[in-house]
């Protein structure tokens, strides 16, 4: 319990900042919706003049874009990008904190098992992500009902929002596993940005070429918002893919963390 509290305390500032930033970005986008919806016809004209691959890469669907959910689905692409960075960074930095700041000699010589250290870290990361999502959910839902022009499906909206948490869980574990794959990791941010943007680009390429197999390679494609709006559910095979990624990362990371030698410097 003391380690859990300690991890929360170490990460509370960045967690707060991320929650505010995510909610802020959502508010900013949604504030644009009323103007956008009014001018939607002329905007659609502009979009139609663009190549289809490009629209697909950005996740733009011309027919749906004027509706609140369609618009939200589009802007959510960037929300999930930010969320992924937060989660990956959190996972990687939390697990490498002791080796980066050389505090392993402090923490791992205490009368605790490494398993207990690991559990506390993951549990506090999970707590931070859930809290971030709770803030985000509340703010975005309030904003949506404020800017809406007609009623929209609350359950589809909720499913889209929950996909943020699920995407973040996947990226959290990716960050966790990757930080343990690189034993001498010194700075986490470049790694986080690099990996997340690479997967984001892969997602854009996959979407524009319409390659079905490519979708499995990037977690950004696991929760297709057009599908969610249409069916009010997730795609089971991609839920399974996400769970598999989490399980593999957790297993690999845990084995590495429990077995590795801890050196100075």
């Amino acid at each position: 319990m003391n380690m859990f509290a300690h991890e929360l305390r170490m990460n509370r500032k960045s967690a707060l900042l991320w929650a505010v930033a995510l909610a802020g970005v959502a508010c900013l986008f949604m504030a644009m919706y009323p103007t956008f919806a009014e001018e939607s016809e002329s905007f659609k004209e502009v979009l139609r003049s663009m190549p289809e691959e490009m629209l697909a890469a950005f996740g733009l669907q011309i027919d749906a874009i004027a509706s609140l959910l369609g618009f939200y689905s589009y802007v959510f692409l960037y929300i999930s990008l930010c969320g992924a960075i937060q989660a990956f960074h959190l996972g990687a930095s939390m697990i490498s904190a002791e080796t980066r700041a050389k505090t392993a000699d402090f923490l791992l010589t205490k009368p605790v098992t490494r398993g207990a250290v690991l559990r506390s870290k993951l549990l506090s990361a999970l707590t931070i992500l859930v809290a971030t999502n709770a803030v985000y959910f509340g703010v975005s839902a309030a904003m949506a009902s404020f800017v809406k022009r007609e009623t929209f499906s609350l359950s589809a909206f909720a499913l889209i929002n929950v996909s943020l948490l699920l995407t973040q869980l996947i990226f959290l574990m990716l960050g966790f596993a990757l930080a343990l794959l690189l034993p001498r990791l010194k700075t986490v941010l470049p790694l986080s940005l690099g990996v997340v943007f690479a997967l984001f680009m892969l997602s854009a390429i996959g979407a524009s070429t319409g390659d079905g197999k490519l979708r499995y390679l990037t977690p950004f494609q696991y929760f297709d918002r057009a599908y969610i709006v249409r069916h009010e559910s997730y795609e089971p095979e991609f839920l399974a893919a996400g769970a598999a990624v989490i399980a593999v990362c957790a297993l690999f990371g845990a084995i590495r963390y429990l077995k590795r030698d801890v050196h100075v410097g």
Binding site: M10, A101, K102, T103, D105, F106, V264
Partner: peptide
């Protein structure tokens, strides 16, 4: 235990 180089949470 007192390590040769001490590092703590800054």
């Amino acid at each position: 235990y007192l390590p040769s180089e001490v590092f703590y949470y800054d």
